[in-house]
Computed example of a mutant assay.
Amino acid sequence: MCDGYGPGSTVVVQTRRGALVQDRWPDLVAAAEAQLPHGLVLDGELVVWDTEADRLSFEAQRRAATRARGAAGLIARWPAYFVAFDVLQLDGQGLLTRPYAERRALLENLFSEHALTAPWTLYPQTTDLSKAWEWLESWTDVSGVEGILIKSMSQRYLPGCRGWTKIRRRYTTETIVGAITGTLTRPQLLVLGRHDQDGRLRAVGRTVPLRPDAAREVAEHLTAAAPGHLWEGVRFSATWGSRDVLDTTLVRPGLVAEVSADRAIDRGGVYRHPLRFQRLRLDVTTEDVPRLGQGPAAAAG
């Protein structure tokens, strides 16, 4: 998202697709009017803090979908913060052709000169590989922090293009196979779940499409679901937050799948991004799988 502050004390909050959403972020707009100079355009990301759970939250999507009338009621629970990645215009002067190293220096100077604090956050940056590795290992233990970005210091800003590389920290964990797409003999992807504290199987994500060898391995152990499967009538989103649904076949929830996941998990324990199937864990039972919202998992076998 971009946060621009220009002539006439007009604050514009624009998504990467060009939608204007400043009416949904009145707290950020007020802070911009009070603290940011005229003629400024920042590139960054809006995040929200869950004050009840005391953690970063993916409820930014909920706030972004709330119209002006309801936005004010969400501020206390999910206050907005802006993490600045880049500066694209300063004092009305465009900076897109300047190298990133120069834009970064101007961004740091902006924060220093105006003594910017919350809700403004300067994205940390380093050219030290050991420090970057330390950040990847330690900071991703914070919920909502997925990994690190790599940019060239000599790179100009390329509107509409991804001129950087994201490295996500991943870990392996166990989940229960509750449904598939495709057929029992040729599964395409797996819909995965975990038991909640009451023993009910809850969907937590899906895999990317299975490789042919993995599909054959899984097919050997699949059994059609018996009547009374807890997911009967449930519709599964094709992607996190999407209205598109998967065409699924329910299976007996007795198989444990080891998957590779990143750190993007919402408060309900649902993975935002598709999981990567690693193998079946035929050496453990569904009772060995972590409960909904718990961490990594059954001991390696």
Rank of each mutant, 00 (worst) to 15 (best):
S138M: 04
M153E: 15
T51F: 00
D244P: 01
W240E: 01
A34N: 10
L20M: 11
T173I: 10
L20A: 03
A19I: 00
D54P: 01
R216Q: 14
L96S: 12
G92K: 08
Q278V: 14
F85T: 07
Q89H: 05
V29L: 06
W135R: 07
Q22L: 07
Q61Y: 12
D262W: 01
Q125W: 14
E258H: 04
T172C: 09
R162S: 04
V204Q: 05
V256D: 07
A297F: 02
K151D: 05
R186W: 14
H221F: 11
A224Y: 02
R168A: 15
T185Q: 14
A257E: 02
T248Q: 01
G293V: 02
E33Q: 15
E33F: 00
S9H: 13
L56Y: 14
T172H: 11
P253K: 06
T126D: 07
E137W: 00
A53S: 12
R63S: 08
R63P: 03
F58M: 13
P26F: 06
Y81F: 15
G295H: 08
Q294G: 02
V13E: 06
R211K: 09
G8I: 03
R276I: 05
L192I: 03
V218Q: 05
W164S: 03
A226K: 10
V41F: 09
L74N: 03
V47W: 02
R206K: 10
I150C: 13
R62K: 13
P7Q: 15
P209S: 14
V47Y: 09
D27L: 01
R168E: 11
L230P: 14
F85K: 11
A32Q: 12
Q294N: 04
R211C: 00
V177A: 02
I176Q: 06
R69A: 15
R170E: 15
R17A: 13
Q93D: 11
V289H: 07
H229C: 07
E45I: 00
R186M: 09
R252Q: 15
P119W: 00
R69N: 06
T117H: 13
Q14H: 01
L184T: 13
V204S: 02
H221S: 04
L292C: 12
E137P: 00
L116C: 03
T285E: 04
E102M: 05
A179L: 08
V142W: 00
E102P: 03
V12G: 05
T97W: 08
Q278G: 02
E217Y: 01
G301L: 03
S143N: 13
D244I: 00
P187V: 10
W133V: 02
L107Q: 08
Q294F: 02
R62F: 07
G70T: 00
P79V: 03
R62L: 11
G70A: 08
V191Y: 04
T15Q: 12
E59L: 12
E258S: 09
R104H: 12
V259W: 03
E102W: 03
L110M: 05
S237L: 07
R169S: 13
R168Q: 12
E232D: 15
D43Y: 06
D198F: 06
E146K: 00
A71R: 06
